[in-house]
């Protein structure tokens, strides 16, 4: 038997339960999908040993770590972090960032180590998945001719000055 007075309370509780069932997985999913940044990792804002997801540009080259693993250094907002992974996982990356190229932008998911025991205490991420978000490409580098003109004029002036200095030396 249900008391008439408890009915509205039960109805409210049912609505609340339904709302929780529908909304909380969404909230939980949102939390899992939140990406970290390299700056957050390197400024110790993420707990040691947690799984993280972050994005950034791969710079310079893949560096060998033993027989079948490599390091990729991933740059974001001027700060880079080393990502350790199986060599075949790194094969997805085709362009590495340097003076001439912007490197591939990758999304890395892996375990964040504030001081990795297997790598001499280095801060790193051991990757579980790596996805290329954006293909890298050539950077626009335009030589500015005015610099060359000013430089050559300066060198000519210095040459004339050096001849004058030599004459002064001869007359002293």
């Amino acid at each position: 038997m249900t008391d008439q007075r408890t009915l509205p309370v039960m109805r409210s509780a049912s609505v609340l339960a339904l709302a929780c069932a529908l909304l909380l997985p969404g909230v939980a999913h949102g939390a899992a999908a939140r990406e970290s940044t390299v700056i957050e990792l390197t400024t110790l804002e993420v707990a040691d040993g947690t799984q993280v997801t972050f994005s950034g540009e791969v710079v310079s080259e893949a560096l060998r770590d033993g027989e079948d693993r490599v390091w990729l250094n991933v740059l974001d907002e001027g700060v880079a972090i080393g990502v350790n992974m199986p060599a075949e996982m790194a094969e997805k990356v085709s362009v590495f960032g340097d003076h001439r190229n912007d490197g591939d932008v990758v999304r890395v998911t892996g375990v964040y180590n504030e001081a990795c025991r297997t790598h001499g205490g280095d801060m790193d991420v051991h990757a579980e998945t790596v996805d290329v978000l954006e293909q890298g490409g050539e950077r626009t580098l335009e030589p500015q001719a005015w610099k060359g003109v000013v430089g050559l004029l300066g060198l000519v002036a210095a040459f004339i000055g050096s001849r004058r200095l030599r004459r002064m030396r001869e007359t002293v």
Binding site: P143, A145, G148, L153, L155, A157, A158, G161, S162
Partner: peptide, 21 residues
Amino acid sequence: EWDAALDYLFGMGIACAAGMA
């Protein structure tokens, strides 16, 4: 690196001219 080469031509010119002066 032609863009950077001009930076050094510029730098050399300024340094040598100022130093000689």
